[in-house]
Nucleic acid binder design. Structure first.
Lengths: 244, 244
DNA sequence: TTTCAATATTGACATATATCAATTTCTCAA
DNA sequence: TTGAGAAATTGATATATGTCAATATTGAAA
């Protein structure tokens, strides 16, 4: 527990106490900051900056130097691989309490992906040089970071492999199930994402995505309005996803 | 330096002294084992097993539990993602003195890829539980492993992203340049890989690969016989690769 | 050498998916 | 409320790439 004086150091992010962003319980799938002693945590977070972004704004840009990692306090963002000729692939959606390293932390110190806000979003920028100095002192912390980075990379690899192994219906099914089960976690879900973004998640053009969606609707697998989707027959969608 | 008695413990792999497989100088792009103290190295390698494989044999199989990582002493192997319906993608070729973790080490302890021998190959299997215990003791080692895993994953991500962003000629150009500059490092290079395998590296069917190769030959960019390729106009190939 | 199986090559064709253009629907600011 | 720009939808068409079948070539085994 940090005392009042320490909390106030948090500066421009009054509500963002250390516990709030990073404690064990609230840090999403990762315990990465949970194992730090309070002085270590303090050292790491001492000079962090909390920034607000509006939907569509770029949080980090592909191919720029990686000096900070980003923790999402509230809101939702997309991880994009920007290809030549404006072809974008959305590899992942990240939510509250996740930590994103930009792909190249502890490796080449470059950002391999662009991250852009999907909703209004608050996130904290944490200095990677402080992170590095902690790593040499605390091997459990290094192991946790190792796990976290590997997990992140494996998720992206898996989605990319799915994209290249499957046909359109399989990819659309993947996207719909991912949104329902991992991101929104309710059944008829309202989404903020445009059809273009859903298509970028599925590795196809928006026209193709819409056509595929329509086929699912005609077959009674889903129901959808402009910005909500209800999955009616999940098992059949899963089957389509599996068959590719 | 290890004394005679310690060397002899290496058991069935007489020539494979610790220094040979893992020393700083010879360990390829990775210094990962180079920073270990000799007692640590000894503990890690004490019960390693060296195994010989013939071309085509599977060294590790996707979706099996990951209990050992593999170090390649001599020879060449392919890292494959096996999709449903026999669609395979070769993500990487690995050579002498590389270390391969199977993708899921320190994460979910499952192998996310298949690795198969391309040539005759000697490799050592190192127990991951010993690796884990070393990680907690030696934070520099943990950092090195972190770098190594990240680098591996980023390489695979990069090649997958190239596969999904580019058209066939760009992908074929990528494969040809990769083989020349990274793997064989000579210009007219003889390869052991079949056209099917080259196609699997490029994410297409062998027929499509062959047609694309022929177009390059007709345009005077390359010359090729059944199992050798010479790159005549590298800059133009690079251009094709860049344009996608 | 002869033979056979694996690999490579070629061609004709099918199909998945992108592209382009036209139209509709929505959203939000004036 | 209106109107304009953005997003969504639809249709017609082009293109990239896969599939299938036939043939040719190679290399190893007998």
């Amino acid at each position: 527990m940090l005392d009042e004086k320490e909390k106030s150091r948090c500066g421009d992010c009054l509500e963002c106490k250390y516990e709030c962003c990073f404690s064990n319980q609230q840090c999403g799938d990762s315990h990465i900051f949970g194992i730090l002693a309070s002085d270590e945590l303090h050292m790491l977070m001492d000079n962090k900056r909390q920034i607000h972004f509006r939907p569509g704004e770029t949080i980090m840009k592909q191919n720029t130097p990686l000096t900070h990692l980003v923790c999402i306090k509230s809101g939702m963002a997309k991880v994009v691989s920007e290809g030549p000729k404006g072809k974008n692939l959305i590899l992942q959606i990240i939510k509250d309490h996740s930590i994103f390293t930009g792909g190249g932390a502890i490796t080449d110190d470059f950002r391999h992906f662009t991250v852009a806000a999907v909703t209004e979003i608050d996130c904290c920028f944490v200095d990677t040089s402080r992170l590095y100095s902690l790593l040499t002192k605390n091997s459990s912390f290094a192991i946790e970071l190792l796990k976290h980075c590997n997990t992140q990379h494996l998720k992206m690899l898996t989605s990319l492999i799915n994209l290249s192994h499957k046909y359109m219906p399989g990819r659309v099914a993947d996207t719909l199930l991912y949104l329902k089960n991992i991101i929104f976690e309710t059944n008829p879900y309202n989404f903020i994402l445009s059809k273009q973004e859903l298509a970028d998640m599925s590795g196809m053009t928006k026209e193709s995505f819409i056509r595929s969606l329509k086929e699912f609707e005609d077959s009674g697998l889903i129901r959808h309005t402009r910005n909500s989707i209800e999955i009616l027959k999940e098992s059949e969608l899963t089957e389509i996803s599996r068959n590719g």
